[in-house]
Every structure is written in C-alpha cells, then in structure tokens.
C-alpha cells in the first residue's frame, strides 16, 4: 500500500458517502444515472468473487470489498424503492448493452487465465472503465448538475487519477511487473473524466454552478 493508492481508495469511499449524503439530504436521486449505479454493482460483484475463495489479503482489502458491494446495492435500493418517484428514467437513456457486450468480448480476449475468477475480474476492469458514461451522458443531456452531484463525480475521477501514480510508484518500488489490463483500462477510464474535470475546476471550484456551454 502506498500513499497514492490509499488516497485513491479514500477518494472512492468519499465519492460513495457524497452520493449517499446527496440522496438522503435532498431526499432525491435527481441527476444520478441509475444505469451507472447498476453497472457499478455489476463491476463490484464480478471483481470481488475472490471473497468466496477466502484467499485472505488483509482486513483492509476484505472490508473495502464488502463495503463497495454493499453500498452499491444499497444505492440501487434507494433509487428504485425508497426515492423511486424522484428517479426520471426518460433522461437516463444510454444503451448499456453497448458497454456490456464489448466488455464481455474484451474479457475473453484479454485476461490472466481462463478461470471463473479471472474472466469476471477482467470483465469488471473493462466495465468499470466505461461505467461512468451513462452518468456523463445524462449530464450532457441536461446541461447542468447540482453541485453535490459534481462533487460525487469529481471524487470518482480523483480516485481513478490517483491510481496512475500508484502504478508508476509500484513499477519502480516492486519487482513484479505491470498489470497491463488494469493500467490500460485505468488510463482510458481517467481520460473519460478530463472534460468533466476541466469544467469542475474552472466553474464549480470557483463557486459557479455546473453548466455546460450551450
């Protein structure tokens, strides 16, 4: 564990707490893509199948995995049951089958072994890299967002960005090579946040509302 990865994981945790806070305090899931949240559940469940093997890494690792699975399912419950009337599917129109299909194909081509752990793991890495797209697409359609929602997306972007220096650090301090699948997918994922990040830094952090140019 190094500084960048710890900070990245904490940023990931923070993003989930920001999202929960947004839904609970506004009593609304307006502006949040249900499809992106469904994809995150799929990502966590397929990636953390190794929990079932009880191959223990650390308490940190196990607790975080359980938290990510549990909180992502809880968010679906909040959106679909508790605050269902505030969820507007008519603007959440990204076709997620166009993400799921190619990720499934990629995971069959690029993986670290044809096993029931490695193929879902690889699939989850590819899927995570594009899981934010329905959310960004929704933002694009509405052209604006509540400030708290932009903090949520920014925390997710920071988490991804921090994993890159983590890999560089690990490359130079450890002697076991590069996780090419995670690194390539991670760079793609981080790149998807660049546009958003620019507006976040130049508008939201300067105290303005998040609005896309017409």
């Amino acid at each position: 564990m190094n500084f960048f990865r710890l900070l990245g994981d904490l940023s990931h945790l923070a993003s989930i707490f920001i999202l929960l806070h947004k839904i609970q305090t506004t009593r609304s899931c307006r502006g949040i893509s249900f499809k992106t949240q469904v994809l995150y559940v799929v990502v966590f469940v397929t990636r953390y199948l190794d929990l079932l093997t009880f191959q223990f890494h650390s308490i940190y690792n196990t607790v975080m995995k359980l938290f990510f699975i549990g909180s992502s399912i809880y968010i679906l419950y909040l959106m679909r049951v508790r605050f269902r009337p505030t969820n507007d599917p008519s603007i959440d129109t990204f076709r997620i089958e166009y993400l799921l299909g190619p990720c499934a194909v990629l995971s069959l081509i690029f993986n670290y072994g044809y096993t029931w752990l490695e193929i879902p793991w690889s699939f989850s890495i590819f899927l995570e890299s594009v899981a934010i797209l329905p959310q960004l697409f929704m933002l694009q359609r509405t052209g604006e967002a509540e400030t708290i929602t932009t903090h949520y997306i920014a925390a997710l972007g920071a988490y991804r960005a921090l994993y890159i220096p983590n890999w560089i650090f690990r490359y130079f301090t450890e002697d076991n090579g590069v996780d090419a699948i995670a690194v390539v997918a991670g760079i793609v994922q981080t790149a998807l946040y660049v546009d958003f990040g620019w507006i976040y830094f130049t508008k939201v952090l300067q105290g303005q509302k998040f609005e896309l140019p017409a």
Partner: peptide
Amino acid sequence: TGAGRKKDEL
C-alpha cells in the same frame, strides 16, 4: 511472480 494482476488492489 512476473507481470500480471495485482491481487491486492481494489
């Protein structure tokens, strides 16, 4: 171990 998946990452 060689290049490959980092099983300790989340």
